[in-house]
């Protein structure tokens, strides 16, 4: 099938689904429902497009929609600090890293195989949907169905939580160590390859 036609069919179907979802959200929860449906559509639609697109660059940009949608969901959950962290780190950091990876490796437009994509979507989708339906039918969440009140300033709350003596000081320090080690390790791995190219070679 022609690629353009494929794209049209896919995006047409996607747009239809998104519209239906937005309508359902509006009907279910008014303005808040619409906002939720918008962000959920960004999240899920973005990842669907990411899987669908042939070119890695496009996929990476579609992933941006997913990350932003998730950030939006965090805002709806009144966790604005995490939402900002999400945008800063995922969109600003990780996505840029992935784009670097894209730029440093050759493009391959023949790599996507539609049968694989469809089969994966159907199989995994069926599995997850089945589990979800079963869980929804049987699970009794031990939590109330409305959001709890939160402090005025998320960032202050989390910052104090980090540094309080009975708080998260040790995990905080651990995270710092992990980040440092990962950075050093990444630099080391990326650097070694050049050492190997040298005629002398490094110590194995």
């Amino acid at each position: 099938m022609d690629h353009t036609l494929q794209q049209r069919i896919f995006y047409g179907a996607l747009a239809l689904l998104v519209l239906v979802g937005l309508g359902a959200g509006l009907a279910a929860g008014g303005g808040a429902g619409l906002a939720f449906a918008l962000f959920a559509a960004m999240t899920i639609g973005g990842s669907l497009m990411c899987i669908w697109e042939r070119s890695v660059v496009r996929s990476a940009f579609c992933l941006m929609a997913t990350f932003t949608g998730v950030a939006g969901l965090f805002i709806l959950l009144e966790s604005d600090f995490i939402a900002m962290a999400q945008i800063l780190i995922y969109v600003g950091g990780i996505l840029v890293l992935i784009l670097f990876g894209v730029m440093l490796t050759p493009p391959d437009l023949t790599e996507r195989q539609l049968p694989r994509v469809f089969a994966g979507l159907i199989l995994v989708g069926a599995g997850v949907a089945w589990v979800a339906v079963k869980v929804a039918a049987t699970a009794r969440w031990a939590v109330p169905d409305e959001m709890q009140p939160t402090a005025e300033s998320n960032a202050r709350e989390i910052g104090v939580g980090f540094l309080r003596a009975d708080g998260y000081v040790v995990p905080f320090e651990l995270a710092a160590v992990v980040l440092t080690v990962a950075l050093v390790g990444a630099v080391y791995i990326a650097r070694r390859k050049r050492a190997d190219l040298e005629p002398q070679g490094g110590e194995s």
Binding site: R116, F118, A119
Partner: peptide
């Protein structure tokens, strides 16, 4: 069927 074939082959391959 060419289009159906996509699904079928993929199904075979995966399953």
């Amino acid at each position: 069927n060419k289009f159906l074939g996509f699904f079928s082959a993929a199904f075979d391959r995966i399953v």
